[in-house]
Design a protein around this nucleic acid. Structure first.
Length: 585
RNA sequence: CGGGAAGUGGCGCAGCUUGGCUAGCGCACCUGCUUUGGGAGCAGGGGGUCGCGGGUUCGAAUCCCGCCUUCCCGACCA
């Protein structure tokens, strides 16, 4: 028997009006359909209807994780600081880590992710190459003190996540584990009925060498991605804009005479915008000079005034661990001036580890930039004459912009928005090294275990599914993750032994193969129809006047809106037919 | 953290400018009657320290000061 329910006895507080704090459809609908309630900013309770959907997604994930030989475990959400000290992330993770102390003043955090715990677990309990490969996974609430929680469960401070970790003896074996996961993720997201894109991604807080994100495409997505949609593109290209590479379309040699370098007084004008306005010059004539601190020393990046620096690219070229915008002191050392007057001319190269420039900078004629002197800028700066940078240090440093071309095939890139529902990381030895997780090889030599980690935001998948599939009346669930398969709507004006009996019969008969929600409430038809549309169960079976008159059920499909009148015994066949039709569309 | 908005029964709001009677409306809830195919009608009823603290005043939801919370726009991320 399946998990069927009567609505009269189901805790599902639906609302007629949108909650005022909700902006995007999935948030509004999840609250209105009685799936979730907010307890505090970014902290939500899942009610029976909402949790059923989460469980559906969970089951789909579990099946695929088991298919790639993953083994399910549960680790502790509460994690001791000592472990995080080893990886160095107690410091590095910053204020996003939820920290707390126990009665003896020992420090803990609520796990935002589990690399430390699992590396410790495996490192202390696995010793031979014979035990590899190994993949472990879990479902668990994760805690991240987000700067700005947003959009309901889309960006929550407590959220339900599937995280898995692979352990391998060498990089080749790890690449196989990584591929297996990517394959599993593809199945998971398509089984959830989602349209998604795989993109190259930056590794962020987790670190590691290579990483991909699974993006559900939706207007309301918080991420921006670029794709090459050209059919001729070899293998295609898709990337998060954070990471995206490109070929340029904008670089042209300007045939303009180089004019004489001039110093200009620009009191209290620091930003490109301010100086541009003051001098009445377009931002694309400016050279923006950004100074970063890194573990190797200060790094300087030059980009054109109207462009934005891509820190991920700079990080890669500078071969630096972390980059943070430099403070006053570093800037003073390098420019001899306060913040806001940095420029490439007469910069103190002694104090700098490396200088990089975006390729576009080279071609700005008679450029404007800081004079490295308080309240002064320079104009008519020209590359070669006024400043020099090694040829190899001209790179793609700016963020990808509209009009840029595919780095593989040269066709124009398309921009889309996406919701990140999954992320895969090839970690290498980042954690096994710092946490001391090693194995003994066949040759008797101790080696670091090669790791990968892989996450799916389960609760976010639910929100993303709604974002992708809803209408003005409510949610339209994909069959695979719908909270119920069939919604029996017994119209209250027809409450009688006759409709009661057929509903009872349908309920118990259908429950052998389907999850059924029977609306047996003493509500008016309007209320029942509206609620049914709102909660979006794929098949609605209306038992009302047509049954009393003709012995017919009225079956309505949420997705197609199609309505048919049939005898009760034809129901299963009708549902199968509709499923076929939907597949073909 | 910067910029913007808002806190009044469970939900959505009005009242505040110009202080004054018992704090009001819609939805939801309870009781009764009537209704019943796309969020029914009538009658009756319950539920509010007006975010918190302080101040001004004979009198504060309303004016002043401080704090807290929530939401939206930017940096983080599943």
């Amino acid at each position: 028997m399946k998990e069927s329910r009567k609505l009269s006895n189901f805790f599902i507080p639906t609302l007629k009006e949108d909650p005022k704090e909700a902006e995007i459809p999935s948030h509004k609908l999840m609250v209105r359909a009685g799936m979730i309630r907010k307890l505090a900013s970014g902290i939500y309770e899942f009610l029976p209807l909402g949790w059923r959907v989460v469980k559906k997604v969970e089951d789909i994930i579990r099946r695929e994780m088991n298919n790639i030989s993953g083994q399910e475990i549960v680790m502790s959400a509460l994690q001791p600081k000592t472990l995080w000290d080893k990886s160095g992330r107690w410091e590095k993770y910053g204020p996003e880590l939820m920290r707390l102390k126990d009665r003896k003043d020992r420090e803990f955090c609520l796990g935002p992710t589990h690399e430390e715990v699992i590396t410790h677990l495996v490192g202390t309990n696995l010793s031979s190459y014979k035990d590899l490969p190994l993949t472990l996974y879990q479902f668990q609430m994760k805690f991240r003190d987000e700067i700005r929680p947003r959009f309901g469960v889309m960006r929550a401070r407590e959220f339900y996540m599937k995280d898995s970790y692979s352990f391998d003896k060498d990089i080749k074996a790890c690449e196989k584990s990584y591929k297996d996961h990517v394959g599993a993720y593809r199945k998971i997201f398509s089984n959830c009925g989602l349209k998604y894109k795989e993109v190259e991604a930056a590794t962020g807080n987790i670190g590691g060498q290579s990483s991909h994100e699974f993006m559900v495409t939706a207007e309301t997505g918080e991420d921006e991605i670029v794709l090459c949609e050209s059919k001729d593109c070899d293998g295609g290209y898709s990337s998060n804009v954070e990471k995206a590479d490109y070929r340029r379309s904008e670089i042209k040699q300007n045939i303009v005479k180089a004019e004489e370098l001039k110093e200009i007084h620009t009191p209290d004008r620091r930003t490109v915008g301010e100086v541009a306005k003051f001098l009445n010059q377009p931002p694309e004539k400016f050279i923006k000079t950004l100074i970063y601190d890194s573990d190797k020393g200060p790094v300087v990046a030059l980009v054109r005034g109207d462009h934005e620096l891509n820190e991920n690219h700079l990080k890669t070229y500078a071969d630096a661990g972390e980059l943070t915008l430099a403070g006053k002191d570093t800037i003073k050392d390098i420019t001899g001036a306060p913040v806001g007057f940095a420029g490439p001319v007469r910069i103190n190269k002694e104090a700098v580890h490396k200088i990089f420039a975006d390729k576009a900078v080279k071609y700005i004629k008679n450029a404007v930039s800081g004079a490295n002197q308080k309240d002064y800028h320079l104009k008519n700066i020209n590359y070669g004459r006024d400043y020099k940078i090694k040829k190899d240090n001209f790179k793609n440093l700016r963020k990808v912009i509209k009009g840029d071309l595919c780095p593989r095939c040269g066709k124009e890139l398309a921009f889309k928005r996406g919701i990140e529902v999954g992320h895969t990381f090839l970690l290498g030895t980042k954690y096994s090294k710092s946490m001391g997780a090693q194995y003994t090889g066949a040759d008797g030599v101790r080696k670091d275990i090669i790791m990968g980690c892989y996450g799916i935001g389960v609760t976010r998948v639910v929100a993303a599914a709604i974002e992708q599939s809803h209408d003005k009346d409510g949610i339209i669930w994909p069959d695979s993750i719908a909270p119920f398969d069939i919604n029996i709507i017994q119209l209250s004006d027809q409450l009688s032994d006759k409709t009661d009996n057929i509903c009872k019969e349908l309920f118990s008969e259908l429950s052998k193969d389907y999850e059924v929600l029977w609306d047996d409430r003493a509500e008016s038809p309007g209320v029942k129809f509206k609620d049914a549309q709102l909660i979006g169960i794929p098949v609605q079976v209306v038992v009302g006047r047509n049954y009393l008159k003709e012995g017919q059920l009225e079956v309505q499909f949420r997705k197609s809106g199609k309505k048919v009148f049939i005898k009760p015994k034809e129901l299963k066949e009708t549902m199968e037919n509709e499923k076929e039709n939907e597949k073909n569309n």
